[in-house]
Amino acid sequence: MKLELRFFASLREALETSQESIDAPATVKTIADLRIFLVQRGGAWAQALAEGKALRCALNQHMVDANTSLQEGAEVAFFPPVTGG
């Protein structure tokens, strides 16, 4: 499944990546699956996306929870809790 990934703030800096296009394997069905898949890259990915890290996610620019299903071509963003205002 083709996905457009976006990373912001401290997560973007830790990964040294702000966006990336990937072709995820069929086992990646939800945002939680995608996070596990990215953690398996090891190194900074394993650290910054580790299970205990408080991260938020958005699917097609709407905040969603990790159990949300992915669709072909979706834009998926990971970021720390927001601190605007």
Partner: peptide, 26 residues
């Protein structure tokens, strides 16, 4: 609106302090 913005609008603050730059915690 302000409470909602604080928790749901995707903004992040990074501060420059004497101890170096740091991202603000939620």
């Amino acid at each position: 609106m302000m409470d909602y913005l604080k928790t749901a609008a995707p903004f992040w603050k990074k501060e420059d302090t004497p101890g170096g730059a740091r991202w603000v915690d939620a």
